[in-house]
Computed example of a mutant assay.
Amino acid sequence: MANQELAEENRMLREQMHEFLKQAHHNQRIMSRHQSFNLELIGASSFRELIDTIFSTLPTSSDLDVVSLTLIDHQSNLRSILQDLSLDLSDFPQLMFVANETELALPPHTKNKPVLGRYSAKQHGSFFSTCVKKPVSVAIVPLIRLNRLIGCLNLGSFHASRFTANMATDFIEQMGFIIATCLENVINHERLTYIGLTDPLTNVSNRRNVERRMLEEIGRARRQQYSISCMYLDIDFFKQVNDQYGHQSGDDVLKEVASRIKAELRLSDTLGRFGGEEFVVLLVNTDQQAAAQVAERIRLSIAGQPFFLSMTGVCNSTISIGIATLVASGNHGDMEMIAAELLWNADRALYEAKQQGRNRVCLAN
């Protein structure tokens, strides 16, 4: 009898050890996935790469059904930079922005700690507003950098037991710290990139950035077999504005011209100041006729409204525009030579617009 009891006890111990071993292997796999996720986060060199990692890798590594991210973006500064760097934010519906901490609407009792529990539309709806299917349990993780709240990471599961109020949060807090640090790093990197590629007066691309983007777009147009158009724009009689109203007023006109041009463009288009009163626009997937329509809208927006000057009232101005188009059948050979020729043709068309009396659009032959 004693032997049977001992054998049964040994059997139960072996089963228990087997379960412990299975759980250890399971935990090891989980830790391995988290380590891989952390390495991907740390290795991300751009905002897009980091966001891609959060939304594509985190759900798998942490067995999550829903992941979203809410960032505090004062005066839309971050969104403006990302858009100017040609990041289409519509690619990331799970990424949301709020203007301040109040709008973020974290529960007041959190004290910068993760909030875990059952999903409540009233309390958590804004964090999962873009999700078609709402989670059952959630973890709202504040993202803190240097005692400053920069947003929150929102984790959701379709299982009620996944996140409960009595769960330990050390692991989630550590993940939030890593993500907050990586976010701040890539955002600062994007800001530095933006500064290096932006004209400081008008806040549009500088010449170096336009030339870089032109090569990129010529390559993309070649692969996808579509036309691209280049506009060369020059403010008419700009020297007279400086002479009559002063250089500060000339700067006012330059900034407003850039703003009016940009208002007529798509996110995928590129606007840059080439120097002085000259601007260049690159229109992707745009033939000559469509480019002419965009140019005419720009011309009318400049000529149709006066320019309010910060120091000396108002003035009127016009702009001349030359257009050259690179069709798919002509997009072959050395891309730098093609870019130079496209720009030269647009410049020659601009010269024709000037010769014909200014305040007009001319197309390259």
Results as ranks from 00 to 15, higher is better:
E5M: 10
N10G: 00
R11Y: 01
M12V: 05
R14D: 00
R14A: 01
M17G: 00
E19N: 09
E19D: 09
E19Y: 10
Q23H: 08
Q23C: 02
N27M: 11
R29V: 04
R29A: 12
S32D: 08
I51A: 08
D52Y: 11
L58Q: 03
V66Y: 10
T70L: 12
L71S: 03
L71Y: 04
L78T: 06
S86G: 04
L87A: 11
P93F: 07
L95A: 10
L95P: 02
A105H: 00
H109A: 13
R118L: 14
R118D: 03
S120E: 02
S120H: 06
C131L: 08
V136K: 13
L149E: 05
G151V: 03
C152E: 00
L155D: 02
H159Q: 14
A160K: 12
A160N: 08
N166K: 14
N166I: 14
N166S: 15
M167D: 13
T169Q: 15
T181F: 07
C182A: 15
C182N: 15
V186C: 10
H189L: 10
T193S: 11
L197E: 10
T198Q: 04
T198R: 06
T202Y: 03
N203I: 05
V210D: 00
C230V: 09
M231E: 03
Y232T: 11
Y232G: 01
D234N: 06
I235S: 04
D252E: 08
D252P: 14
L254G: 07
E256V: 11
I261Q: 02
I261C: 06
K262C: 08
L267K: 15
L267T: 14
L267N: 15
S268E: 15
G276F: 12
D287H: 12
E296K: 15
S301P: 06
I302M: 14
P306T: 05
G313E: 05
N316M: 06
T318Y: 07
I319K: 02
A324R: 06
A328C: 05
A328E: 14
G333R: 03
E336S: 14
E341F: 00
L343W: 06
A346R: 00
L350P: 02
Y351S: 00
Q355G: 01
Q356N: 12
R360Y: 01
C362A: 11
N365W: 04
N365D: 10
